[in-house]
Design a protein around this nucleic acid. Structure first.
Lengths: 338, 338
DNA sequence: CTGTTAGCGCGTTCAG
DNA sequence: CTGAACGCGCTAACAG
C-alpha cells in the first residue's frame, strides 16, 4: 500500500494540510515542522498520487499548444496522429491540446502562432521550431520565463527548451549511407537528395550521409547532393535534371516527398538501388513493388505522442524530463511490410 | 468540458446513482428510465473518466500476474523491464503487478504458477505460454471463464486469450534471411540457428527463414538448420560442430544466446557475414566490433509494457483490446548503435 | 426501484 | 502558522 498524505499526517501528528504545505514549501509554515514532515515523508517513500492530482487538475483546464512548421507533409501527418492519440489519453486528466497549423517554413507566422497560443491560454508548448532568428528569439524568451517548451522532431542551435525530442539525424544519415553501401556494393555512384537545410536536423542528416560516403574507406562515390524544397513539382524537376545530367548515377539516397522521385525510379535502367527516408503510403508502395530497396524510419507517431506526454508529466507531476529524448532510426525492407 | 454523470443526472432529472446503475446495467432499475438515461448519455457523448475510476480502484487492490516460461535470458530480461515500467505507471491507479519466474520450458511448473497467481488474488494474467498440453488446457479454461489473459511475445495454436502480443515471427524470419542475402550476396552458404521450437513463434520464424532461402529464386544455399536449447554450453558445442563439419559454411543467421556463438565468430576466416536476432549487450558488442553485420530486434521492452497496459485498460476501463497486437521487427546496423 | 452519502488522494480555501 | 472542510468524477453501500 502506497503512503498518502494522510499517513504522513498521522505519523507526524499534524494535519494533512500542514503536510501538504511542508512538501510544497508554500504558505507560511513552521520551519521545524516542515523539516520533520519532509523527513518522515522521505522515510515513508511518499510519492504523490498522480491520479488524484489528475482529478483535481480537471477544474484547472490546462492547455497544451502544438505548433508546426509545415503543412501537407506525410511525415508530419503521422507525427500529429501520435499527438492526437496522446491528447486523447490525457483528456481525462483535464488537459486539452490544441494544434496550430503553420504555412511552410514561415518563421514570422510561426512566431505569431506562439503568441496566439499564449493568448488562448496555453500552459505548455510543443513546437517544430524553424531555425530562423525570429523563432529562436521568441522561443528563448518563452523558455527563460519558465514556460515549458518541448522541441518536436526538430531543434535549434541552442537547447532553449525543457526537452528536445527527435532522432539522431547525423546517425540516421550514416545509417542510410551505410545501408546503401551494403545494397549497391562498391563502385556505385550516388545521388543524394535531402530536404531543406532550414531545419537543423536535415542539415545534420546530410552531413551524416556526406561524411560516410566521403570517407576514403568508403567504396562509393557521391556524384551530387541536392537540397529539396517540399514542393512536389520543383523537386521532381530537380531530380530528373540530375539523373539526366549525370548518367553515371546508379543509386539514390533520398529524403523527401515520394511523388517527386517517382519519375526517376520508373526508369529502372539507371537507378539500380535506392534508400529512402520515412515511410509514407507512397514509399510503402515503392518498397513493395521493388522500386526501392529500403526505407529508414524514425517512429514519427511515437515522437508526437511522447512530446505531449512529456509536457503532461511536467505539468501534472512536475516530472522534469531529460533534456533530450532520442528516437532510433529503423531500417525497413520489402519483407518488413508486405 | 467533458460530460459527467452529474450532467446526465441533471439532464434526465434523476439522481447520479440512478444514472450509474442505468449505464452499468447493475442493480434494480426501471427499464424505461434506464433506456432514457442511456440515450441521453449517448447524446451527450458521455465517456467515463478513467482518472476518477482509478482513484476508486485504489481501494480495490487489483493485481496483475505475469508468468514467464524461462529464466536468465537477455531478451526476456528486457521484456520484463517494460513490464516493470508499466507496472510502476499504473501503481497510482491502485493496480499491483507481480512477476512469477518459471524454470526453463517446464510446462507443469508454469501451470502451477498460474494457480499460484490465482491463489494470490490475481485479477488478470500476462503469460509467455509454453506450447504444451497442460498449459494449453489450463489457459483455455481460464480464458473461457472470462478471466482476462494476454499472451506476451508468444502464443498457442488457439488464441484462447483476450489479446495476443508478439511480433510477426514468420515475417521476422523472412526479414533476416532477406537481409543476409543482401549482405552476403549470391552463392553464400548459410547456417541457421534457431531457438527451441517448443515456442510456437520460434517455429514460425524458422519457417520464415527456410521458406525464403529455399525459394528457387534465392541465390543462397542453406547448409544446415540447428535447434538451440537456451543452454549456453550445449549450444556453443552444437554450433562449433556444425562449422567444423561443414567447412563450406560462410554465413550465419542466428537467434539465441550470444555467448554460445562467440567462439565461432572469432574465427573470421570462415563466417564472413552474420545476422543475429535481438540486441543483448553482447550482441551490441558483436555489432560494434564488426563480428556480425546486423541485428534484428522486436521491441521487447515495448511488448512487455504493452501487455500490462492492455490488461490495465481492460480492468479499469473495460476497453476490449484487439485480438492481436503485432510489433514490427527492426534492423540494426553498426551505425545504428555506436 | 431510487436518492443520498461516504470515500479514493490531493489541492485549495476559509476559519481559527 | 495550522486544522478542517469541500470538491474533482466515480463507485458502492445503505436508506428510503
Amino acid at each position: 500500500m502506497a503512503t498518502t498524505l494522510k499517513d504522513i499526517a498521522a505519523a507526524c501528528g499534524v494535519s494533512i494540510g500542514t503536510v501538504e504545505r511542508a512538501l510544497k514549501g508554500k504558505g507560511r509554515i513552521n520551519p521545524e515542522v516542515a523539516e520533520k514532515v519532509r523527513k518522515v515523508a522521505k522515510e515513508m517513500h511518499y510519492r504523490p498520487n498522480i491520479v488524484a492530482k489528475g482529478l483535481v487538475n480537471r477544474s484547472r483546464k490546462y492547455k497544451i499548444a502544438v505548433v508546426l512548421h509545415i503543412q501537407g507533409n506525410d511525415f508530419y501527418d503521422t507525427v500529429m496522429a501520435g499527438v492526437r492519440s496522446a491528447a486523447n489519453e490525457i483528456l481525462d486528466y483535464g488537459i486539452e491540446t490544441q494544434i496550430y497549423p503553420c504555412p511552410d517554413f514561415d518563421a514570422e507566422a510561426q512566431v505569431a502562432l506562439i503568441d496566439q497560443a499564449l493568448a488562448d491560454g496555453a500552459s505548455a508548448l510543443a513546437i517544430v521550431p524553424i531555425d530562423a532568428p525570429a523563432v529562436i528569439a521568441r522561443v528563448a524568451r518563452l523558455h527563460e520565463s519558465g514556460f515549458p517548451v518541448v522541441f518536436l522532431t526538430a531543434f535549434l542551435p541552442e537547447p532553449t527548451c525543457l526537452c528536445s525530442i527527435h532522432c539522431d539525424y547525423y546517425r540516421s544519415g550514416r545509417i542510410g549511407a551505410s545501408l546503401l553501401q551494403y545494397l549497391a556494393g562498391p563502385g556505385s555512384r550516388v545521388l543524394a537528395c535531402m530536404p531543406s537545410y532550414r531545419m537543423l536536423g536535415n542539415h545534420l542528416r546530410k552531413d551524416g550521409v556526406l561524411d560516410f560516403i566521403r570517407n576514403p574507406a568508403c567504396p562509393m562515390e557521391l556524384v551530387n547532393l541536392v537540397e529539396l524544397t517540399n514542393n512536389t513539382e520543383k523537386d521532381a524537376e530537380l531530380i530528373s535534371q540530375q539523373v539526366r545530367l549525370h548518367p553515371e548515377i546508379d543509386s539514390l539516397i533520398y529524403c523527401g516527398n515520394a511523388k517527386s522521385a517517382q519519375l526517376v525510379l520508373q526508369d529502372r535502367t539507371q537507378i539500380k538501388h535506392a534508400v529512402f527516408y520515412d515511410l509514407s503510403p507512397e514509399i510503402r508502395d515503392l518498397l513493395l513493388n521493388g522500386s526501392i530497396d529500403a526505407a529508414i524510419t524514425q517512429s514519427p507517431e511515437e515522437q508526437g505522442h511522447r512530446a505531449i506526454m512529456v509536457l503532461f508529466q511536467y505539468i501534472t507531476g512536475h516530472t522534469v524530463p531529460p533534456e533530450v529524448v532520442l528516437f532510433d532510426s529503423h531500417i525497413k525492407l520489402k519483407e518488413s511490410i508486405d
